[in-house]
Design a protein around this nucleic acid. Structure first.
Length: 418
RNA sequence: GUGAGUGUAGCUCAGUUGGCAGAGCAUCUGACUGUGGCUCAGAGGGUCGCGGGUUCAAGCCCCGUCACUCACCCCA
């Protein structure tokens, strides 16, 4: 085969596409009830937007970005996530001048140069939401409740909602130091990855799955104990509101976010039915980012749902695809031309009509009708054209109805209105 | 970037010790002249991922390479 898709990217074909559309439609319906409006952002941005927001030393920026020079010599990058682009637009168009909270959602592809595996692709799709301008944890609770509602309306069940607070610029460095102090003496017992993490991102050691590491880190200080007064109060209120809104969740102080910009609230939704990449959605608060991007200090919170992560969870529960309302089976050259015209007229009445372009044997046309699941057929032969009458056959019940060659009458019969 | 597994028909996969390239499904045709699903018969469809090596002979053994899959890392 000469041409094929690049590694880690995929075509989405029918019948899978109907799953995508259902997820998108369900999400839109929920977003609407919470007042979130769609925003469409470019998939390509100036590289420094991502370096600035995601963090220079993160894996995403260091080795996973699709970055290249355009013909004007500018460094540009295919977006690896949505929030940075969103905040850029938020500042660029002064969206902070709208009454807060300003609430937006987006759907689209993201790009990361990684080794593909189950649930991980180089081009992957996210449904994201961002809410700006409100610091109150009520908004945190509300957006998590909205996420829960979306996932539920898509038909997902048995998901784990994990919530934590990772502090702010004030208290996180203190915690980081305390954690490093605790780990320092035991470091030689940890796995190679953890030893590397110690300098790079010590918080991630708390998330390591190696049994020795799990043992060694017992008794390590918890983020939550180190939260400053402000962050602590925010987190306590969030837990209260989540309870009030009846969003089932667990507190996981070891939850780690891979992006530098998160502050305070961080959350993740996982499924045990997936492989190693089991996070179906994740998000958090980013109160410093608008400021960093040159806008007025503005708090923000958002999440992203991984499309490819939820599709395998619902693929089997999706209903049968739609099938044509009518297949026109012509016999002979003249009839097949008439069939083309007829199909066109019936379609303007909103019916899904298929017409055989070639007049093959009636038997093979019937077989085709059966194969494509046509709900009705009409045979268009010399007799019909001469008499101006056709028999409409209901392919499910097998009943046959005689009618004139009139598209209005035909449409009624096909719709079961007559 | 690291490791393991898998590459044979459109799809899912058999293929014995090295001995003519196979099945099911799908497609088309016929049995059945203008009424489907069931059944039966037939047809089309192959660079056995690619390149080299061993051998009288390689889908099978050896070396290399590419792709896919899963996992590590990381993450939606």
């Amino acid at each position: 085969m000469k041409f094929k898709t690049l590694k880690g990217v995929q075509d989405i074909l029918p019948p899978d596409i109907s799953i995508w559309q259902q997820i998108e439609a369900a999400s839109r319906a929920i977003f609407k009830t919470y007042g979130y409006q769609e925003i469409r952002l470019p998939i390509i941005e100036s590289t420094d937007i991502f370096i600035r927001s995601i963090g220079e030393t993160t894996d995403i920026v260091e080795k996973e970005m699709y970055t290249f020079q355009d013909k004007g010599g500018r460094s540009v990058t295919l977006r690896p996530e949505g929030t940075a682009s969103f905040v850029r637009a938020y500042v660029e168009y002064h969206l902070y001048n709208e009454p807060p909270p300003q609430k937006f959602y987006y759907m689209g592809p993201m790009f990361r140069y990684e080794r593909p595996q189950a649930g991980r692709y180089r081009q992957f799709y996210q449904i994201g939401a961002e809410a700006m301008g409100v610091e109150d944890p009520k908004l945190d609770a509300e957006i998590i409740a909205m996420l829960s509602k979306i996932l539920k309306s898509i038909g997902l069940a048995g998901l784990n909602f994990e919530v934590t607070s990772i502090g702010c610029k004030e208290c996180r460095p203190d915690y980081r130091e305390a954690l490093k102090n605790f780990l320092h003496d035991k470091l030689s017992g940890f796995c190679n990855d953890c030893q590397r993490r110690f300098e790079l991102n010590p918080l991630r050691i708390l998330d390591c799955k190696v049994p020795d590491c799990i043992n060694l880190r017992k008794g390590a200080p918890s983020v939550i104990a180190y939260l400053c007064a402000d962050c602590k109060e925010h987190f306590e209120k969030l837990k209260h509101y989540l309870g009030m809104l009846k969003v089932p969740h667990t507190i996981n102080p070891n939850l780690v976010r891979g992006l530098d910009y998160y502050t305070k609230t961080a959350f993740e939704v996982t499924s045990e039915s997936l492989g190693a990449q089991k996070a179906v959605a994740a998000g958090g608060r980013y109160d410093g980012m608008v400021d960093d991007f040159g806008g007025p200090p503005t708090p923000g919170i958002g999440f992203a749902i991984g499309m490819e992560r939820i599709i395998p969870l619902i693929r089997d529960s999706i209903g049968k695809p739609e099938t044509p309302d009518l297949l026109i089976c012509p016999l002979g050259q003249e009839a097949s031309e008439k069939g083309l015209l007829f199909a066109e007229q019936l379609r303007t009445r909103g019916l899904w009509v298929e017409a055989n372009y070639e007049s093959t044997s009636l038997k093979s046309q019937m077989r085709k009708a059966n194969r494509i699941g046509a709900k009705n057929i009409i045979v268009l032969g010399e007799d019909e054209l001469k008499k101006g009458e056709v028999l409409v056959k209901d392919m499910i019940s097998g009943t046959v109805t005689k009618t004139s060659l009139d598209t209005g009458e035909l449409a009624k019969i096909i719709r079961g209105e007559k």
